[in-house]
Write a protein that binds this DNA or RNA. Structure first.
Length: 218
DNA sequence: TGAATTTGACCTAG
DNA sequence: CTAGGTCAAATTCA
């Protein structure tokens, strides 16, 4: 996908260079014709004008050539894992912090995109973004981190506001990684389901569950 | 088979 | 330079 885009860009660039070369060639031939007929001032002006056109073609071609060289060389260096330039880290934004012993749903659909072990913290921090980040451009994010084992206590930090249109009654669930299950650290919220798997989230979206049955797994 | 999660690599603010 | 926030390939799930 990305490589095909790159190939297309490269081929487009090559076409542009070919066309510019043709233009320069035509201007060169026009200058030769004019060279034979420089009889008065107007012809002299036309002659210098053609010269300017030619130098413009040459300048454009040299710019394109240098870009092509740099892009092709950078392509050799960069790998699939090279994500420089794509990453945008949030500066210190206003945050809403909640501490709760129960991971009660907040009415929004969240999608986990990362988990990080935090220095001097016993439990990992989980990173969530709004499910509708891409389809509706919703910029809401949140972080969930367990801060206490018994009784379970979680710190939920919200960044940004929801701009997506989601039903306020839609349930939301949070679950730590499978490793945490092994470490007896995880918490699972189950919303009126016969299956204790948090991946049933989208089923709840459709069911519009209102009654909530919370259960924790440690 | 598509969507969600996991997780190591990558990137940058401080 | 490091901690921590994000990305995206691999994996899991339904």
């Amino acid at each position: 996908m990305k490589s095909s885009l790159l190939e297309r860009k490269t081929s487009d660039l090559e076409k542009i260079i070919v066309e510019l070369n043709r233009g320069r060639e035509f201007a060169c031939r026009l200058r030769e014709i004019l060279q034979k007929h420089v009889d008065h001032v107007d012809d002299e002006d036309a002659y210098t004008l053609v010269g300017k056109i030619m130098s413009s073609f040459c300048a454009t071609l040299s710019i394109l050539s240098s870009n092509e060289d740099s892009s092709s060389s950078s392509c050799k260096i960069s790998s699939l894992k090279d994500r420089r330039g794509r990453y945008k880290r949030r500066k210190t934004l206003e945050a809403t912090i909640k501490e709760t012993s129960t991971l009660v749903h907040d009415g929004h659909a969240w999608r986990k995109y990362g988990q990080k072990k935090i220095l001097n913290d016993k439990y990992p921090r989980n990173y969530f973004r709004c499910t509708h980040k891409f389809d509706q451009g919703c910029q809401a994010n949140k972080q969930v981190q367990r801060i206490q084992e018994n009784p379970p206590l979680f710190r939920i930090t919200y960044y940004g506001h929801h701009t997506c249109k989601t039903c306020p009654k839609v349930s939301q669930m949070i679950c730590d990684s499978p490793n945490d299950h092994e470490d007896s650290n995880s918490v699972l919220l189950n919303f009126n389901s016969t299956n204790n798997n948090y991946n049933n989230h989208h089923h709840f979206l459709g069911m519009m569950v209102e009654t909530v049955d919370l259960s924790f797994e440690f």
